[in-house]
Design a protein around this nucleic acid. Structure first.
Length: 288
DNA sequence: CACCAGGCAAGCC
DNA sequence: GGCTTGCATGGT
C-alpha cells in the first residue's frame, strides 16, 4: 500500500483486502452512510470523514498525513495482513466462498465506549432503527461538526452524558434499552467499570467486567470485545450466526454446548474475523 | 393483523 | 444450571 497526500486528500494506492461496502455494511458499525456510489461519509474519532474508492485506490477527503497516521490507519486496521488470515480461516469450500464474497472486510478499531452503547441498543433491534437511535443520541449529547454544508455530531463521551436519566433519553426512542444506557453511563463515570482495562485484561476478566453492565449479555459483550477492543478471538452469536453455523456445521454445533464455543473450536484464534465473513455472506445472500 | 429485529433480565423449575 | 416470558419501538 502506497500512501500519498494530494492537496487535502490522502490517496491509498494498491490497497488489498479493503472494500468500503464490505467494511461498512457487514454490521460492525452504525455511523457510516453511502452518499454516492462507493462513497461513504461517517463520524469516528471525533471527526467527519468522506472516503471513496475506485479501482484499487482509496481516497480519504479533507484530511492530512498526520491525521491519517494518528487516526485512520488504525481505525481501518490497515496494518494487518488480511490475505494471510483469510487463508487460515478458509478451512473448507463454504469458508473459501465466504472469505471471497466479503474479501474486503476489515475489523474496524472503534471507540470502545461507542461500541458499548451501540451494541446495547442493538439488542432485539434491526439495523436501520439501531442507526436512527444512535444518530438521535449523538444529536442530543454529541458535539456539532459542520461538513460540506451539513451538520454532523460526534458520539458523546461518558462525561457528556453524565447524570442522564431514562426520561432525558425519551427523545431518542430507545425503548426498554434506555435504562441500560443509564446504567452504562453511571458505571463508567463512577469508575466501577474501567473501559481502558477491557483491552488489556485477560479475556475472561474483560468479559466479566462488561457483563456487570445491565443490558450487556454474552453476545453484546462479544461484539464490544471484537469491534471495540480488537479481540479477534471472540465469536459473537446472533440469530443469523446461529442459523448459519447450524446449517454449515450441524455435527460440531450439536457437540458443543453453544455456537460460540463451536466457532472458537472450528476457527481458533481469528474466529471473530471468520464470524464477520459468515455474517456478511449469509445475510447478503439470504442463506439458511 | 401477526411477526420479527445483530438479546437481555427476571422469574420459573 | 437450563428454559420461558416480557420487553419499547418501528418495519414488513
Amino acid at each position: 500500500m502506497k500512501v500519498t497526500q494530494h492537496n487535502n486528500c490522502i490517496i491509498l494506492e494498491n490497497v488489498t483486502d479493503f472494500n468500503l461496502r464490505h467494511v461498512f455494511l457487514c454490521g460492525q458499525c452504525f455511523r457510516w452512510d453511502e452518499t454516492d456510489e462507493n462513497t461513504f461519509i461517517g463520524v469516528a474519532g471525533g471527526r467527519v470523514l468522506k472516503i471513496s474508492s475506485s479501482d484499487n485506490n482509496i481516497t480519504l477527503f479533507d484530511t492530512k498525513l498526520q491525521e491519517f497516521n494518528e487516526i485512520w490507519l488504525k481505525y481501518f486496521d490497515l496494518t494487518r495482513d488480511y490475505s494471510a488470515l483469510k487463508k487460515v480461516i478458509a478451512i473448507d469450500d463454504i469458508m473459501k466462498k465466504a472469505t471471497q464474497y466479503g474479501g474486503g472486510i476489515r475489523i474496524l478499531n472503534q471507540d470502545i465506549w461507542e461500541t458499548v452503547i451501540s451494541f446495547i441498543i442493538s439488542s432485539s433491534n434491526n439495523i436501520p432503527r439501531i442507526k436512527q437511535i444512535i444518530s438521535r443520541l449523538c444529536e442530543l449529547y454529541g458535539e456539532k461538526i459542520e461538513y460540506e454544508n451539513k451538520t454532523y455530531y460526534t458520539f458523546p463521551s461518558p462525561e457528556a452524558m453524565c447524570g442522564v436519566t431514562e426520561e432525558a433519553l425519551a427523545p431518542i426512542r430507545a425503548g426498554y434499552r434506555a435504562k441500560y444506557i443509564v446504567d452504562a453511563v453511571q458505571k463508567v463515570n463512577s469508575g466501577e467499570v474501567d473501559l481502558s482495562k477491557i483491552k488489556t485484561e485477560p479475556l475472561g476478566e474483560a468479559k466479566k467486567m462488561l457483563l456487570s453492565i445491565k443490558g450487556i449479555g454474552s453476545k453484546v459483550a462479544d461484539c464490544i470485545l471484537l469491534f471495540g477492543a480488537g479481540r479477534l478471538n471472540v465469536f459473537p452469536v446472533d440469530t443469523w450466526i446461529d442459523k448459519a453455523m447450524r446449517g454449515m456445521y450441524p455435527q460440531k454445533c450439536d457437540a458443543f454446548k453453544n455456537i460460540a464455543d463451536a466457532g472458537d473450536a472450528i476457527f481458533g484464534e481469528y474466529c471473530g474475523l471468520a464470524q464477520q465473513y459468515i455474517y456478511f455472506y449469509a445475510r447478503e445472500n439470504k442463506l439458511y
